[in-house]
Design a protein around this nucleic acid. Structure first.
Lengths: 176, 176
DNA sequence: TATTGTTATACTCTATAACTATA
DNA sequence: TATAGTTATAGAGTATAACAATA
């Protein structure tokens, strides 16, 4: 048994995966995959609901950030650099719970795109301070505005108060 | 740009990954990865909070389900079969948003462990009805009890009413 | 001796194409 | 022609070990 597997229960919104082959002229009615399956127990579990909600938000996020060429993790990295100029790779890893070897490629990619600059660290010659380039600042600003707007759109069935309440309850679940 | 990447922003709880090499005798204070990094903006985003909460719950889930040899997806499959005897693979895929090729191995594994039985479908000879074996029923029952208890433990900072409220708010986010 | 950034690498998860046997 | 279950395979995400330079 792999101890290292979170696995699904739920995945990316179907809409983002397959363009849904138009109207399927339904030839074989047979078992009917759309039949009434009882999922009520799973729907009573917090983890199930939290994961579905997270994937719903991420799905919209993927769509709206596509024009910027940013995945959620890229946005997180750019945003942390924007709010913490001179941050090191190690600090990014700690804040985002990313393993160092897996961050290397992302930083390299953002650097190649000219969005960030790697400067020598003022006090530690092993490390390098990360900064946004002018273009990176512009992109991050637009992306952050998009994320902020997305926030309201994706929770359009919730009032402002309910959205704040939801985030507060979520924080009480994961804050140790 | 891969259109098919949800990516992290957050990952599995650190506790489940590395036993944290005891007390690190801190030799190089240098940049100090534990420094005060401003993550306030990310923490204001619904998706970030939902994902962190989901991962926190899943982390506890992984620990407590390990004795049963069940990942979240395995538990979901067993539970849906338990509550929907005779369900087909296709129906499982639709309910859990799993792609058929990726379900094959899971079903095969659960079958090999003697937890489920694949019987010929009553009306469609292409399909097979899935059922729990006696051992499967016992395991699923114990696992479900564990999941139900876990529910209260992981949200121990929330009252019963707050937990119900949280799940209701989450459902209003992802229900279309 | 410990840490930063890095390479190489392996394993898991997710996705697409294509096959067979039925419908 | 379309669907159920399946195989093979490719790609993205996540994990560990180990190295050179520096602390």
């Amino acid at each position: 048994m792999p101890e290292t597997s979170v696995a699904n229960t739920l995945r990316r919104p179907r809409a983002l995966r397959k363009p849904a082959t138009a109207a399927p002229a339904r030839a074989a009615p047979a078992p009917d995959s759309d039949a009434k399956i009882d999922t009520s127990y799973l729907e009573s579990l917090l983890g199930y609901n939290a994961r579905r909600a997270a994937l719903a938000v991420i799905g919209v996020f993927l769509q709206r950030m596509a024009p910027f060429g940013l995945r959620p993790v890229d946005f997180s990295v750019l945003t942390l650099i924007a709010h913490n100029p001179g941050i090191t790779s190690r600090q990014l890893c700690a804040a985002l719970d990313i393993l160092p070897p897996n961050l290397v490629g992302m930083i390299k990619s953002l650097d190649k795109r000219g969005l960030i600059e790697r400067r020598p660290h003022p006090t530690d010659r092993r490390a390098q301070g990360l900064h946004l380039s002018p273009g990176g600042k512009k992109l991050q600003k637009e992306a952050q505005a998009t994320a902020t707007k997305l926030e309201r759109d994706v929770a359009n069935r919730l009032s402002d108060e309910e959205l704040e309440r939801l985030k507060e309850l979520l924080q009480r679940v994961y804050s140790r």
